[in-house]
Structure formats: structure tokens, C-alpha cells
Design a protein around this nucleic acid. Structure first.
Lengths: 158, 158
DNA sequence: CAGAAAATGATATATTATAACATTTCATCA
DNA sequence: TGATGAAATGTTATAATATATCATTTTCTG
């Protein structure tokens, strides 16, 4: 079993730095501006491996001394989402940083209902099953939402 | 190809009556009360093959002369959802009537972005792929959300 | 640097959902 | 059969999530 979820005590700064580096790369490639606000929001999203709501981000920005209104946060989220740097978790109305913003993928999200962490999988079996099912019913896929709630391995075993 | 979506001009009364009959059966089996309000909400949900928001239901009830507040609708939805008579479509914040309330299943939803219709699939390939992926990462499933947006066959070809 | 485009600020409001307490309805059994 | 408790619904208020619109600032480009 390969746990998708990060180990306890992992070096989270590394996650954040790597995510920032990837984000910069993607923005660069897309000729999109990774402005201060976008970087702040992105960094806040990466503060944990949980999904974060727009208003939690708003509060965090306020706590940092920024006086910011909802549209500002939602715009940053829209930007980040469109570039694939962040995914919206529909069943939580919350946002989650993407590990692999540089490749197209149908992501699948495991959401632990105990610790709240989220992990993204890019599982070809699942993707193919979805594509095949769609083909079977003559359906043209534009977007998919696959969210799986339950207990991560840590929470199930402790 | 077997289209999941109902044919144009199908006898929709039959859908509604069949759904009501199934709902009654399930409520009976569960010793749950299919009250007037619950039946009204359920019937309204089945007025189309689209997903319906709570406030659309509220408006429809108001139009019928009922003066109803949000909690009333949300309670009916909670009841129907818990019995599996209705599913929540997370990516639409809307509710959709279930065809197969009598058997446990991990449902998958195809949502046409053109005509707005929704169709539920119970595809074992998809379900198994999800279960297998979860097993592979030591994840214990509690609930799944699989929602596929795109064009239904009718809309793709017309 | 001027002008256009993009981003952010600010205000207001729409949409979705729930908390808390009051009242009514319904099943049951003494 | 009517008292009683549980379930359902009514009522009021408010929380949580999201967007529309117009003003201002920042950045890019020629």
C-alpha cells in the first residue's frame, strides 16, 4: 500500500516551496501573472494538506493585516483554478492545492473525514473507467468530479 | 450505445408514478413517514430529469400556494436524502431523484451542461475502480461523489 | 510617457444552508 | 379515548458561500 497522504512530521516547507516553484513555472508558461495576492492565496492554501474555504482564506489574509473583500479572494481562486494550480472540492465548498499542475489530468480526491486532510490521486484505472462509462452512454466529458470520503490509513489504524 | 437519458417525448408521468411507488415502498420498509410535505418535495424533484435547487423547490411550493420557509424544504431534502430517495449533486448544489432507492449503490451522475438533464448510472467498472484505488492507498470509503459534466448524446449530436 | 488592458478595491446583494425555539400532528398505550 | 411523548412542521433569525457592478490602481505595450 502506498499512502497518498503525507507522513506525519514530513518537511512541509518542502511541499510549499515545491508548490510555489511549480506555480511559478506554470504561470510563466501561460504568460499569466502570479501577483502578490495570488501568491498569498496560493501559499495560504498550501499551509496544510486540507481543503480551505474562501472565507478561511479571507480571515487568514485579514489576520496578516490585509484588509480584503470576498471578491478579491474569489478572483484569486478563479485564477488559480483556471490554471489548474488549485482544485475546488465540490463536496466541501473548499479549495485544495494541486501537486501536478503541469499535466492535464482527471483528478480524484480522497478526503479524510477524521483528520480533514485531502489527497489527490491521478489514477488511470479510475479515469479510464469514467471515460469508458461515458463512451458507453454516448456522453462527451467536459469535466469530472471524483471525491471519495472516508478514513485515511493513519486515521483508520490509530 | 445505451443512452441513460430518457428519450424525448417519453411518458414522464410514468417516471413520476414509478418513483412515487418506489418511495412509498422504501418508506414503508424503513418505517418512515412519507408525509404530505415530503411527498410534495419529492414530486417536485421528479417534475423533470434535471437537478433542482432547494430554493427552486421553495419557489415551486410557494407557487402552489404553500407558504413555506427554507428549513421546511431542507428538512424534507434531508429525509429524502437519508433514505436514498434523492441524491445531492455536489457540483450543482442541487438535488436529484434516484431511480433505484431500494438497493445500495455508489451512484455516478452524468450532467449535461447543455440541456441540464442529469442521469444516474450504477456502473460497476467505475465503482470497482474507485474501491480498488481506495484499497490501494489504504483508504476506507464512507461515501463517494462521482459527477461527470459534459454533453449528453442528444445535445452532442443535434 | 500615453493609452489600453489587467488586476484589485469597494459596495452591495444574491444564493445556499442551518440554528433555535414554538407549535402542530401523530402514534401509542393506559 | 384522551393524555402523553415523539416526530414533524412552522417561524424567526442568521450563518456561510458566492457574484454583480462600478471605481481605482497597477502593469504592459507601443
Amino acid at each position: 500500500m502506498s499512502d497518498l497522504f503525507p507522513k506525519k512530521g514530513h518537511d512541509h516547507d518542502r511541499c510549499v516551496h515545491s508548490a510555489l516553484a511549480q506555480a511559478e513555472k506554470v504561470c510563466d508558461a501561460e504568460n499569466a501573472r502570479f501577483t502578490d495576492m495570488r501568491r498569498k492565496v496560493f501559499t495560504l492554501i498550501w499551509q496544510s494538506h486540507k481543503a480551505v474555504t474562501a472565507y478561511e482564506l479571507l480571515d487568514a489574509l485579514t489576520a496578516e493585516g490585509q484588509r480584503v473583500q470576498p471578491p478579491t479572494v474569489y478572483r484569486a481562486l478563479e485564477f488559480l483554478t483556471e490554471l489548474g494550480l488549485v482544485h475546488r472540492i465540490e463536496s466541501l465548498n473548499a479549495y485544495f492545492g494541486c501537486d501536478r499542475p503541469d499535466c492535464e489530468h482527471l483528478g480524484q480526491y480522497f478526503i479524510c473525514t477524521d483528520c480533514g486532510r485531502v489527497a489527490e490521486a491521478v489514477n488511470e484505472d479510475m479515469s479510464n473507467a469514467v471515460r469508458k462509462a461515458a463512451r458507453g452512454v454516448g456522453f462527451t466529458i467536459e469535466a469530472t468530479t471524483v471525491e471519495i470520503k472516508g478514513l485515511c490509513h493513519d486515521c483508520a489504524t490509530h
